[in-house]
Simulated assay, not measured.
Amino acid sequence: MHVATGLARQLALGDLIGERGWQLDLADGTVTFGDDLRYQVQLLGTENHDDGSWLWAWANEASSLPPALLHLCGWLREYGQRQGLAELTEPTFALQRADGHRLALLASGLTGRCYYRGPYDGGAVFFHLDDAPPEITEPVRPERALSVLGQVLQSFPVDHRIAVESFLHQQSWRLDSAPTSVTAQHVDGSTLRVDFDALGRVSNMSGTVSP
């Protein structure tokens, strides 16, 4: 379960980019944010808001995309074939099945990369950053960890306990699991307790954050 850690990377990327504009250079295989941030990219796919569809970059023959930018989405297609995941192998499908954010976040969990959604008139392009700075993937501060967990549990159909334990473990918290709860301690002394109901859903989260 990597959804929460993937979301944490996205929030860190948002902090880094801020209000900068973006410019994608397909010939060079890079994206530029503002005047000072430039990264290598791998294309994922595009959302078409006119017909409400997703199109994987490997299937976008009309755009003559550089093959060097399709390695990642090609790998995802092969992964989908091995795992029997239709959304990773079908060239195009309705966004109601899975939109760009969900697909890119899944890819982020599998690859450890962060992604960017670049809007344009009539749609959006999604791509991964190949060489994002290390602060994007570093464990987040405890206060952000609580926020990330809350967003994931509200927005994604995940197993609550698996999501909580996986995320906190990936973020280097020390865990102590009980039948109906998980307590965790951060290296800075912050603590967190998560209680679960009879159906395994989070019923309460409480803790202390060290200054």
Rank of each mutant, 00 (worst) to 15 (best):
E19A: 13
E19S: 12
R20A: 14
R20S: 11
G21W: 01
G21H: 06
W22S: 15
W22Q: 12
W22P: 00
W22A: 14
Q23A: 13
D25V: 05
D25T: 01
L26I: 03
A27D: 12
A27E: 10
A27H: 09
D28K: 14
D28N: 11
G29C: 06
G29R: 10
T30P: 07
V31K: 05
V31G: 08
V31L: 12
T32S: 13
T32W: 00
F33L: 02
F33D: 05
D35T: 07
D35L: 06
D35C: 01
D35A: 14
D36W: 09
L37Q: 10
L37S: 07
L37V: 01
R38L: 11
Y39Q: 03
Y39I: 00
Y39K: 05
Q40G: 15
V41A: 09
V41D: 10
Q42M: 07
L43T: 01
G45I: 06
G45M: 05
E47L: 06
E47K: 05
E47P: 09
N48F: 02
H49M: 04
H49E: 10
D50Q: 12
D50K: 04
S53L: 03
W54F: 09
W54V: 01
L55K: 12
W56Y: 05
A57R: 08
W58Y: 07
W58N: 00
A59S: 15
N60W: 13
E61W: 09
E61V: 14
S63A: 15
S63G: 01
S64I: 00
L65T: 02
L65K: 10
P66C: 06
P66E: 02
P67R: 11
P67Q: 11
L69C: 08
L69G: 07
L70A: 09
H71C: 02
L72F: 12
L72I: 00
L72M: 14
C73R: 03
C73M: 09
G74Y: 00
G74N: 09
G74S: 14
R77C: 11
Y79D: 06
Y79F: 13
G80M: 00
G80Y: 00
Q81T: 01
Q81A: 12
Q81Y: 02
Q81P: 00
Q83R: 11
L85V: 09
L85S: 03
L85K: 06
L85C: 03
E87T: 11
E87V: 14
L88M: 12
E90W: 05
E90F: 04
T92Y: 05
F93D: 05
F93G: 12
A94M: 12
Q96Y: 07
Q96S: 14
R97H: 13
A98F: 03
D99T: 06
D99M: 04
D99A: 13
D99C: 09
G100P: 09
H101C: 08
R102G: 11
R102V: 10
R102D: 11
L103D: 01
L103I: 06
A104F: 06
L105C: 08
L105T: 07
L106Y: 15
A107S: 13
S108A: 14
G109L: 03
G109C: 05
G109H: 01
L110G: 04
T111S: 07
G112I: 04
R113A: 08
R113Q: 13
C114K: 03
C114V: 15
Y115G: 08
Y116R: 05
R117T: 04
G118L: 15
